[in-house]
Design a protein around this nucleic acid. Structure first.
Lengths: 209, 209
DNA sequence: AATTTTCTTGACCGGTTGGTCAGGCTGTGG
DNA sequence: CCACAGCCTGACCAACCGGTCAAGAAAATT
């Protein structure tokens, strides 16, 4: 273990507490929405006094913005595996896998994103119009190329993307409903079966096999 | 126009105002969640003084419960067309059509439902465990019968239902995101294309044709 | 050891919230 | 005409909200 410079060590306290706060905030925002969440509740969950939150994040909105942005980053990187795939079976299959894993590991993040978009995206509207739009047009072109190469049926690429987002995120956003119908939390096998089902139905749905 | 008895005329005022309040409440709850919504805002949107809301709906929670229950009713009846269908092409096709129409006509209702479920369903948990579970098992049996009759591929019925819910409701819950990427609101043709795309991909995905 | 920077926190504040209530209004039945 | 039940509402309240601040503790720098 190499020693860290003093100037970096100082920021460790900051990073530790910020992480603590962000984790608590993600959960509270996910369960109550922006309006329903209170700084006091986030503070209690993080084990810090409320005034300390305002030291690291001046306003409630600042904190919320950070939570949403962090999720957006994770969400975007899920498509990396899709890009250099030879065809839809590998590419879209991997994308479904990645998105299902995110739904499993970051269910609260997915919910905060959903809250934000339903709220007409007051905080991340610019991200939608720039980053997400650019990302989307890129994948649309990729899908169109696969269609032109005869590797899948001529489906509308945009609606395919919506279906991918909807289906995978549903397991996070509506996890409570699913678990209620399932009479309990998802096991490893349940997640495996869900992922396989989604892959099978969608890949066959787009004529990839 | 036939005259109404006097005793009924009075209840008409009640029904009229209740409808006014419920419409406003649906919109505000959808846009802000339970915690973020305020009785004052609902009152302003309904064009009534706040105290009047509390005359018809004693508490904010009572009003919210009514909004969620009303949506649940609409949501359940969407499957009526699915039941007496000869096979998945007609049955699931009609169900997709009905759910897409609901997403178009009642986007706010769908959002309130999403909010409620993400919030771990504090108000309608009993509905999930009784009515929705019964509904689900009924359709699962129907799908299993279609599979046994060789009318569709042997997919997992529950995950098929989740996919149907996720995909169709996505156009309501994430409508803002979709319209941002679409550079504007959905036209009649856009809705037609979306519905067709969903039908095509899912029906092929389950091997119905 | 002195000093400066970063971190911590209880107490506090103005504004907003859900909800109450007394009193007025309206139209129907006798 | 009166009486009465249902409807309406301005004014009000305790509770809670996000955010502030001053004073001090802890840590880093000199």
């Amino acid at each position: 273990m190499t020693e860290l410079p003093r100037s970096q060590r100082r920021t460790e306290i900051r990073q530790h507490n910020e992480t603590l706060i962000l984790q608590a905030a993600e959960k509270v925002f996910a369960e109550a929405g922006f309006g329903g969440a209170t700084m006091q509740l986030i503070a209690d969950m993080a084990g810090l006094p409320k005034a300390n939150l305002h030291y690291y994040f001046p306003t409630k909105e600042d904190l919320y913005r950070r939570v949403v942005q962090d999720i957006f980053e994770i969400w975007l990187h899920a498509a990396d595996s899709m890009d250099q795939a030879p065809g839809p079976i590998e590419g879209i299959g991997a994308y479904i896998q990645a998105k299902m894993d995110i739904s499993r590991r970051h269910p609260n993040g997915s919910k905060v994103w959903a809250f934000e978009v339903m709220h007409r995206a007051p905080v991340i509207q610019d991200y939608l119009e720039t980053t997400l739009r650019a990302w989307t047009t890129g994948r649309v072109r990729l899908i169109e190329r696969w269609i032109a190469e005869g590797k899948m049926a001529p489906v509308d690429p945009e609606h395919l993307l919506y279906m991918l987002w909807a289906t995978t995120q549903h397991y996070a956003d509506f996890g409570h409903q699913i678990e209620t119908l399932n009479s309990g939390p998802f096991s490893d096998a349940d997640w495996q079966k869900a992922t396989d089902s989604v892959k099978t139905m969608i890949l066959r749905g787009i004529g990839a096999f």
